[in-house]
């Protein structure tokens, strides 16, 4: 069993008085990429922000290695951010400051955490860019974000995230803004990172991306984890009705795109109107009266699933 880099237990986050994350628990293991999937608004980005200390943690525990970080002061968080936990964002164009060179922005992060001269920081920046397979790295470091292609920008973003050798890299939909061929290259790069450099938590709404590059997966819906386990198990036999619906809405990974994608009927609930019982019940084909009570995550057939259909049958 691989050792956990990150252990999240019963994480709750409250924003503007509404409970956005409701008792979220999962682990990120060394060398295994964790995928976090769910529809828009399911709380994936808020989870990432909570792990970065960018939104307050209402209750629960977040452990990096053996260190509890929930409840740290802002100053202590600042020392962790970028150094132990780093983040890659969806759109590398808007995530970089447009008026400073890419290299300068990477240098800035290095020098914020380590006492290094400008030239030493730049040397590390160039080396990182080379590792991220950016051609002509020294030259590229002097360029401005708008002068790089989308793929190169995202590589630079990953280089920046890795610049202080973090333990965990959170990538929030890192390929959504890129075209398909570049997308595959970036995912391959992240796979390599997870083996070599840091634990990777990959946020996506695309089951196809999970199948391609993750070892474990967490399925989120309306701020709640509904199913959790290894990718082979869950892709082969998704148990939760929401996971099944999500998979049905994903085209075959290598096959041709179907003319029409199946969609999940209805809208996900907003945090304000989240049902008392099972969060998926209003849209679920199997809903019955037992769903009025929120089912806990239970181990069933090699994974954890939160659904009354599988209770008692374990």
């Amino acid at each position: 069993m691989a050792e956990p880099i990150l252990q999240v237990r019963d994480l709750c986050v409250r924003l503007s008085g509404r409970l956005i994350l409701d008792h979220v628990s999962f682990d990120v293991l060394r060398g295994r990429t964790l995928g976090v999937v769910g529809e828009s608004g399911s709380g994936k980005s808020v989870t990432a922000s909570a792990l970065m200390g960018l939104v307050p943690i209402a209750s629960g525990s977040v452990k990096f290695g053996s260190r509890e970080v929930a409840g740290l002061s802002e100053r202590a968080w600042r020392a962790l951010r970028g150094r132990q936990i780093a983040m890659v964002f969806q759109d590398p164009m808007s995530a970089f400051l447009p008026v400073r060179s890419v290299g300068a922005q990477i240098d800035e992060q290095i020098r914020a955490h380590e006492r290094l001269s400008r030239t030493d920081a730049r040397a590390r920046t160039v080396q990182l860019l080379q590792r991220m397979e950016v051609p002509d790295a020294a030259q590229m470091a002097r360029r401005y974000p708008h002068q790089l292609s989308g793929g190169l920008r995202q590589r630079a973003m990953i280089a920046m995230a890795l610049s202080c050798r973090p333990d965990l890299l959170i990538a929030d939909e890192p390929t959504t803004a890129l075209d398909v061929t570049v997308q595959a290259q970036i995912l391959a790069l992240l796979r390599e990172v997870s083996q070599r450099d840091a634990g990777v938590m990959l946020i996506t709404h695309d089951m196809g991306v999970v199948a391609q590059s993750c070892a474990d997966v967490v399925v989120m819906y309306a701020g709640v984890i509904v199913e959790r386990g290894s990718v082979e198990t869950i892709l082969q036999a998704p148990l939760h009705p929401y996971t099944q619906a999500l998979m049905a809405a994903t085209p075959e990974i290598d096959g041709p795109r179907p003319a029409r994608l199946a969609t999940i009927p209805g809208q996900p609930p907003s945090p304000a109107s989240r049902p008392q019982g099972c969060v998926f019940q209003p849209r679920c084909g199997y809903a019955h009266e037992a769903c009025g009570r929120r089912p806990p995550l239970r181990s069933h057939a090699g994974r954890d699933v939160a659904c009354v259909l599988y209770e008692g049958a374990a």
């Binding site: 970065m52 960018l54 600042r78 020392a79 962790l80 951010r81 970028g82 150094r83 780093a86 983040m87 964002f89 759109d91 808007s94 995530a95 970089f96 400051l97 447009p98 800035e108 992060q109 914020a112 955490h113 920046m160």
Partner: peptide
């Protein structure tokens, strides 16, 4: 803006 979020994620101080 996104670039400000990036700056926070880098662990820079608020003044920086």
């Amino acid at each position: 803006e996104d670039y400000m979020r990036t700056a926070r994620a880098k662990g820079l101080s608020p003044l920086r």
